[in-house]
Design a binder for these strands. Structure first.
Lengths: 115, 115
DNA sequence: TATCTATGCCTCGAGTATCTATGTATAATA
DNA sequence: TATTATACATAGATACTCGAGGCATAGATA
């Protein structure tokens, strides 16, 4: 991460599940995808991502499979979201909405919406 | 806290600074004010708040003073935000906007705005 | 040729934030 | 009398992320 570090805690797994809900990706690619989508606001460290991926797989949210290496492309470990993972994503998405709405209210109206 | 716990990490100090930027409050009152403003989404524990208040005071963001006890009201420790605290609040406010905007983008558009 | 950068997987110790539990004390309520 | 609300505070446990490091290969650069 980069921005304010502590702010991002707790949302990283949701971001990972979110990008995997659109397509199967491998670890390194997840980092770049999240960075691109967020205009480089989120720059995840590998030391952050890999433990999260392992944890999500262990808990049945993700499944992984290795791609075959070719002459130009080495082996990559792809992740696929499961039904359980999709449900978890929906739940976290809902919590995120509640949370961000609540923060806006405390900050005084639609503070983070304007400007 | 209550909601998703981990999501709230990093934003608590900002919420405290925010309510104190409007009026001076004592600890117990801060908990109730934040709960009210957020429609009970944020239910801070005392064990969370007091260390944050001490830390913010130590870092010059807040100043404190004791109210005199009367027959009906006991002593309360009030907190007042400093100039430095106001600047810090503005900074964190900006970071919050960047962060929440980035999350929305990764989640796929204005996910947390709609519905 | 040697070194650096990018890719791609991984682990571990440290730091930080919050939680739960606990402690102290008083006043009001059931 | 016992519980709840008020009001301050600390301490140990837990959870998430970071920074640093390790391993390996390919391509670019010096």
């Amino acid at each position: 991460m980069n921005i304010s570090k502590e702010l991002a805690k707790g949302s990283t797994a949701m971001l990972v599940l979110s990008v995997l809900s659109k397509e199967n990706l491998y670890g390194y690619q997840i980092i770049r995808t999240v960075a691109n989508l967020s205009d480089d606001v989120f720059q995840m460290n590998e030391g952050t991502l890999y433990p999260i991926l392992h944890s999500l797989e262990k808990n049945g949210m993700l499944e992984s499979y290795w791609s075959e290496a070719s002459e130009t492309v080495r082996r990559r470990k792809y992740y696929r979201i499961t039904e359980k993972g999709l449900k978890e994503l929906a739940k976290q998405n809902k919590e995120w909405k509640e949370y961000s709405t609540a923060v806006s209210k405390v900050l005084g109206g639609a503070a983070h919406v304007t400007a």
